Amino acid sequence: MKLLFIADPLDTFKTHKDSTFAMMREAATRGHELWACEPRELVWRRGSQVSTRARRIQLTGDAHDWYDEMDATELALCQTDAVLMRKDPPFDAEYLYATHLLTQAEREGARVFNRPEALRAHPEKLAIMEFPEHIAPTLVTREIAAIRAFHDQHRDIILKPLDGMGGMGIFRVKDDGLNLGSIAETLTHDGQQTIMVQAFLPAIAEGDKRVLLINGEPVPYALARIPQGGEVRGNLAAGGKGVAQPLGEADRAIAMHLGPILAARGLLLVGLDIIGDRLTEINVTSPTCFQEITDQTGFNVAQRFVDALEAAAAAAS
């Protein structure tokens, strides 16, 4: 198959832990062609198909100079066998515009994973609100007074922007309410930007678990990202320690409920974030943790994913 990866610049990849790289490596072992571009390179001209300036790459096996560029050409997305949208957040206006171009590419015959319509419909933090039975007390607002009232009720809360990743911009305000006003004003830009507020979950001490769904089926191991050094955030990007572990009963129950629903919407790969028995995020843009789970358990996540990708691409052709 000819696979086009739409991702961040290849030179920024940390190949020892990057899940997109793990996908590429597995696909390459099966003889698939690897092509890459960035979202900014997507083009739609009047009367033409959505295309990009794509580069064909070959993996070298070197940890640093990990790819060679074999060819570069203007490539219509519908001329590929599968397009993988793997751009990291933020889910900003430019990301949204890229999904609209990808929707047009689908009309022209491209097979895009995850489906752009589903990406638009599932902002990663807001998406949990569809499943209230699985989440902690949560408020989405830009009103400072509503945030103060939520703190008065729950006393220990987490505040976070809706478009962050890697734990960026997450604050905890405890019972004393210290700096609540300043934090709320900063995150909402004085009431101009909507944020999420949640009751603090003490189970974060045991890790923020990433549960991967591939075509609706859970990978049997989660990666518990455990906060370190007094941090409230377990994200690996914020210094959390990643520990792979078998899915717990609550993890599996949430995964089995959401898996078929999300897969039916065109989400081939999903990363659920679970603290204790509560769902905190539904990651659909570029779910990670493939390599950490594989390295610690021997379960080849990339192999499972490429199996599902091949089957999905074939079914859509």
Rank of each mutant, 00 (worst) to 15 (best):
S51I: 00
K17T: 07
A311W: 11
I261A: 08
H32A: 14
A263E: 02
A93Q: 12
D152W: 08
K209S: 04
Q296S: 03
R107V: 12
H189G: 10
G239F: 05
D176A: 11
A315N: 10
A316W: 10
L223W: 03
A203P: 12
K241V: 01
F150L: 09
I275P: 02
A27T: 13
I254V: 11
A146I: 10
I261S: 06
K209F: 01
L102P: 02
N179W: 11
L309A: 05
A118I: 08
F305A: 05
D68F: 07
L247V: 13
F91M: 11
G242S: 03
G109Y: 10
L139D: 08
I144F: 06
A314R: 14
M70Q: 12
G239C: 09
I275L: 03
E249Y: 04
S48G: 13
L42C: 04
A316E: 10
W44H: 15
M129S: 04
L212W: 03
P116I: 15
P89M: 05
R55Y: 04
Y221C: 00
E249F: 06
K17G: 11
A54F: 01
E69T: 15
L77I: 04
M165Q: 08
G167A: 08
R115W: 07
S182P: 11
V83T: 11
D295Y: 03
F200H: 12
H257R: 02
T15Y: 09
K241H: 02
K125V: 01
R40N: 05
A63D: 15
Q49A: 12
V140Q: 00
R86H: 01
V112A: 10
E130W: 04
T60L: 04
L139W: 08
V243F: 00
L309T: 07
Y95R: 08
L213H: 05
A263V: 07
A237H: 12
P260D: 01
